[in-house]
Amino acid sequence: MIKNISNLGDAALYCDFGTEVNKEINTKVIQYFKSIQQENIDGINNLTPSYNKLIISFDLRKKNFKTIKKLIENLEVINQDKLVSNKIKIPVCCDKKFALDIKRLEEKLKISRDKIYEKFFSKEFFCYMTGFIAGMPFLGDLDNELRAKRLETPRVKVPKGSVGLTEQFANVYTFESPGGWNIIGNTPRIIFDNSKESEPNLINPGDTIIFEQMTQDQYKDYNE
């Protein structure tokens, strides 16, 4: 299933599953990621699954490229049907104080904001990966009509909870951070909680996400 394994530097394996971004390839990445995680292999430090790659970094004092490569090639991979996938609802308030880039999107996409929201909220999203900043989920796929580029000049500070769109993906800023995604609303739901060490992420690769529109009053009174 892995098309090619090469080395990324001297302490990581670069597993290439293809060049496209789709659910099928990404599911294979997640299968490998979870299978390796289960094995608890001594010397493996970190696994980074993404759309179509998996990076395995290891402690060069304990293992090397050859030994890890062999382990991965002989790995028994969990069956796709056995992958755990949660369905998670994320409430989003689209009041204009939160929807920082809705006007820009109307102009770039040449459709009304009502149409943008209608399409966005009627979609079921798939979580391809989490990361860049802690817990940030990369969710796909947006309808073709909603695909826009990043801001030409990224914001220095995107508020925590911001829901953004870029190209075929949606995401949520898990805390205040610089960023260039088109912001269309804000969620009060906590997506990353670093006090929960065993499960800090609400959303994990493979999960299904549904965004639900909420009013300003509901946002204010929101309680998990």
Binding site: V21, N46, P49, S50, K53, I55, M129, G131
Partner: peptide
């Protein structure tokens, strides 16, 4: 490129 994992030293 399509976003993918990084390690220190890249």
């Amino acid at each position: 490129i399509k976003s993918e994992g990084l390690i220190k030293g890249v």
